[in-house]
Structures are given as C-alpha cells and as structure tokens.
C-alpha cells in the first residue's frame, strides 16, 4: 500500500530569491492530485522541493512516517517517490534500454517491501512505441518518445507516488492522448499521482483533487469539479 505525502508550510529559495511561500498540500494513497498554475507559478519548484532538488527548502515534508525535509534526493527516491522532470532529461548518450536500466534500483524490493511489478516487458506493454526503440540512443528519439521513456525510466524504480511535471507540454495531441491513457492506467494500478499541468482539460481528466498556485502561493485547494465550477477563480489564476 502506498504512503500519504504531506507538505506543510513549504518555503523554497533560489539563492536569496524565495520561490514558494507556505505551500501546503497532501496526496493520499492512490489519489491523483493536480497542481495547476501559469508559467513561473511554482509548480516545478514544488515538485523539485518535494524531491530534494532545490538549493534550500524549509517546512514540514513527510512521506508516510518519514520526515523527508532534510533528505537527499536519492534517499527520497528510494522511499518510493518517483520524479518525472519537465525537461525530460533523458540520458541522450544511453540507449533506451540503458536509460531504463539506470532507473532500476539496486534492490528488487523497494523500501516499503513491495515487490517490483515493472520489467522491460511490462513497460513496453504500457508504452508500445518504446519496444522497437530499445537499442536507439535516448537523444535520437522524438519528444513524445522521450516523454514516455522518462516516465518508464522512473517506473523502473517502482515508485508508489509519481511526481509528473507537465508531461503533456509540447507534445502533439495524439501523443497527449496516449500519455493520458497510460497515466490513467497507472492510477488504476494504485499509484498515487501528483501531476503539474497547465492544460486544464488534460489535468481534469486525470485528477481527483487540485491545487492552484500563483506566484509561489496556494490560491485554491479543492476537488477538480469545484475548480471547474469556479469560473472566476480559473480566470484569475489560470487564463492567460
């Protein structure tokens, strides 16, 4: 069973500039939560802060029983948090298969004792395009394929909570559809999801609950349906 993620009063900084102000959010086991906001609102910073990838963060960060506020990224990853970065960051000089191999963790069981359901074959079922690309270099595949690879690479580590940073960004509509289907399948498997998005349609198709960020502050917390009903709020925080 997955663990709940709890973030309370998170403040993050880049040098002397503060990027997040008292951000609080929760992700219950098996829940899909979306993080919405315009460019620069702090969505990526929130995910990076949870993962321990920003220079300085303060606040209460718990994953299940563990305090992850001062933990290094690799330890956080080993607890079962999987991070899929916005820029994809596929290892360009490694083959698709090697990229997946890197994502695999040393132990067959993850920190909480769950056995790893993910194998190359299982992932190739989820993302059929990747199967025939096994031997290709990560830098030589299309943007959509890289997005699938980067998710697959993180799944190899058998996360129980997946942090997805704008997965639909810059992809063709048909690819976004495939991706949406794959993400739903992950949700159905019982993975918790924290998904940052600018695409409200894509997000609302997946998410149960939503948070809206603006200039590093949480402006809205509620169900996706509540957000869809709040036309005024959507215009204020999300429309361009």
């Amino acid at each position: 069973m997955a663990e709940p993620l709890e973030v309370q009063s998170l403040n993050s900084y880049y040098g002397s500039a503060q990027a997040l102000f008292d951000v609080s959010l929760q992700v219950a086991p098996g829940e899909a939560v979306v993080l919405l906001g315009r460019n620069g609102a702090g969505k990526s910073t929130t995910l990076k802060s949870i993962m321990g990838l920003v220079p300085r963060r303060e606040g209460r960060l718990r994953f299940g029983e563990r305090d992850i506020a001062a933990m290094q990224a690799y330890r956080i990853a080993r607890l079962g948090l999987g991070y899929v970065p916005e820029e994809r960051r596929v290892f360009a000089a490694l083959t698709v298969e090697e990229n997946l191999l890197v994502g695999q963790k040393e132990q067959t069981k993850s920190g909480d004792g769950r056995t790893n359901p993910w194998s190359f074959e299982r992932l190739f079922q989820l993302f059929p395009n990747l199967a025939e690309l096994r031997g290709r270099l990560g830098g030589h595949i299309s943007g959509g394929e890289q997005q699938m690879l980067t998710i697959a690479r993180t799944l190899m580590g058998n996360p129980s909570l997946l942090l997805l940073d704008e997965p639909s960004e810059g992809l063709a509509p048909i690819i976004v559809q495939q991706l949406g289907a794959a993400i739903k399948e992950l949700k159905d498997m019982g993975l918790s999801l924290l998904l940052s998005e600018q695409n409200l349609k894509f997000a609302s198709a997946i998410g149960d609950r939503a948070y809206v960020l603006e200039s590093g502050h949480v402006r809205f917390a509620g169900t996706v349906d509540q957000l869809l009903a709040d036309e005024e709020g959507r215009r204020r925080w999300l429309s361009l």
Binding site: M51, L53, Q72, A73, Y74, A77, R78, Y83, P85, R89, F91, A92, A93, L94, E98, N99, V102, G103, K105, R153, T154, G157
Partner: peptide
C-alpha cells in the same frame, strides 16, 4: 549517465 546529468541520476535513487 552521471557524465550527462548527475542531478537526475540522484532523483532516480
């Protein structure tokens, strides 16, 4: 992989 992107490698555990 580390020669390309150390931070990402850390995030993968």
């Amino acid at each position: 992989a580390a020669t390309e992107d150390r931070e990402m490698l850390g995030a993968l555990g």
